[in-house]
Design a protein around this nucleic acid. Structure first.
Lengths: 352, 352
DNA sequence: CTGTTAGCGCTTTCAA
DNA sequence: TTGAAAGCGCTAACAG
């Protein structure tokens, strides 16, 4: 007969085998308090022999903390998520914290489920990097209210005890558009949103600001995106959106001479549509993306794009969260908005 | 004064407030056992009012299970990981299990750390999708020995109680090479490995098998990859490897007329090197990738590649693991190797 | 239908 | 330097 699951080795087992009290074993295992050389050695011997590992649930229950942090990620397929996750993990690891990632790609319900499983398993804090949505926001607010440390990354969410990290999408969008204007473009499209979403979509807002500054009137027909208002289309499917949106733009009587796409995936889709129409980039239509994903280097021509400091966002998020976790009192909201950088390549300028 | 972290609401609080025993509250919350309409209503009222959530640590400690599964992922930036993770999550969700993802991109140490944090936090089972390495394997073996359900996906690892899911990389590699041979190629390179790794690298093995079958002698100079023996280069950096490897191949006195790249990223890098050398794909050099990432559709020309059923791997992994978790006795190892499919595009055949 | 008791494995506190 | 007792929050098992 085969045992289903071997009985877990406990402190008690180690204590009995090594002839000391549980408490002593605990001290040895945790390296806390005084234990004689000799006892330490004897205990460790048994620990190694039986391959003892402390039970996390019991420990958490008693200690009321898990040394664990949760990260809720939306679109996993976006390199952004990858870089962010790795950065967060690295910076947590330095302080001895483990990272558990939950995915929430589709709906508010998934957000809530992810938050709950993290909270229920007593994560010491949560970093949220999904798009905001009312259902999720409401739950997140309750979680923050209950005292769980929370940091949001690039998510529109305000709460008096929730820290906020983000790239400066407003200025990024502004600079991308400014760049196109500097090149002499007047009919510039925004791809990946609709005019109504301008308040939540900072990149679109930056685009509008740049136009206004230069006395170019915004043309709503040039602002196009997916049909769903709250577009939560993940990764490569935004590419499809870019492709389709570009098709619409191309069919306009007075088509744009330049396009600012909300991200590189969208830009890639747009490029495909432009090429299919037999037009040349950037001569016929110039295009700018956002994010500077590795992708951007390999499009033909290489994509001009706005780079955002993703690793830094991860680092700051981790640090802010750890700060909150170890704080002795309730900290006020901290907000960090990080500079972006325009990377000019051949999709806007011929000579590069 | 602001409380640091609000005292957690417990069963006891609910019990007191609603004037019943803790056990009754527990029954209401879990929907187990008989509770009168009236009591149920009263308890739920208090539960909602105080926003009670059961403490997972306490529950796990008592129940000895967490309804939680861990997934250890290597290269997050590979679309493969994304699709796998989502598939696993979906299929777990149906059965009420949460998924926690851990990343291990670099080293055996990271693998071990990830395994440990999952085991220590009492995950009910673990799915491992990182590349195998001796350190990780050793720890994984110990974990499996201790009775924790484990499933490996595409990872070379044999253990009598660890299930195995993988694409049929051997046949996939064979068919990719066969395809090139069918097109008349004789000097076919393998990009992304060295001859010595042929035992662990099934795709390379398939390549060698195809050559042998057609009486083409393998030329070690045509088998090239990264310099590190155990190549654990993640995502887009394998692209760099493809680029560099291709450069080496192009500098050969008798350069190949076709290349089979171990994955699409590598293939993309190779394509770049080929174009830079002023050569045409597929006329001068034909190229086949592996994985059919979304990328493959957007290369110029579109990439011929081998598609593997990633979603299905996730589904099977989830099912096998749940099966193991709920099994009444120790199950023997199950192995599922899934068919791949050659997708022919313009990087090998002009007319397509 | 509801309540009581005991204990999951660990660590905090106090005592020796 | 070591140990004993109590209890974290929950639920299985048994009583009523």
């Amino acid at each position: 007969m085969t045992a289903l699951k071997k009985k877990q080795i406990t402190l008690k087992d180690i204590a009995e085998r090594s002839g000391v009290a549980m408490m002593t074993v605990s001290r040895v295992v945790n390296g806390t308090g005084y234990v004689s050389e000799e006892t330490h050695r004897r205990v460790m011997e048994v620990v190694d022999e039986l391959n003892y590992r402390p039970n996390g649930a019991a420990r958490s229950l008693k200690r009321q903390r898990t040394e664990t942090v949760g990260l809720v990620l939306g679109d996993l397929s976006n390199p952004y998520s990858t870089v962010l996750a790795n950065s967060v993990r690295e910076h947590l690891a330095v302080r001895g914290y483990s990272l558990f990632i939950c995915i929430s790609e589709q709906s508010a319900q998934e957000d809530i489920t992810a938050f709950n499983s993290l909270v229920d398993h007593n994560a010491d804090g949560i970093i949220v990097a999904t798009r905001s949505n009312t259902g999720g926001d409401k739950r997140l607010e309750a979680i923050a209210d209950s005292g769980v440390p929370v940091v949001v990354v690039g998510r529109d969410f305000r709460h008096k005890t929730v820290d906020f990290v983000s790239a400066d999408n407003l200025t990024g969008g502004f600079e991308a558009t400014q760049h196109l204007i500097d090149l002499g473009h007047k009919r510039i499209a925004f791809l990946g949103g609709n005019y109504e979403s301008r308040n939540s979509l900072k990149r679109l807002q930056g685009y509008l600001n740049a136009l206004r500054l230069h006395g170019i009137e915004a043309d709503k027909r040039l602002i196009t995106g997916s049909r769903e208002t709250s577009s939560r289309v993940p990764g490569y499917s935004t590419e499809k959106m870019g492709y389709e949106g570009m098709k619409r733009l191309l069919s306009l009587p007075d088509r744009p001479t330049a396009v600012f796409a909300r991200n590189d995936f969208t830009a890639v889709g747009a490029m495909l549509a432009i090429k299919e129409a037999g037009l040349t980039i950037p001569q016929d239509i110039a295009i700018v993306g956002f994010d500077d994903t590795p992708l951007a280097l390999h499009t033909m021509p290489a994509l001009t794009t706005v780079r955002q400091p993703v690793g830094l966002q991860g680092q700051l998020a981790a640090e802010m969260l750890l700060n909150r976790i170890s704080a002795k009192k309730v900290l006020d909201r901290v907000e960090r908005v990080l500079d972006c950088e325009l990377i000019v390549r051949s999709s806007t300028v011929v000579a590069v």
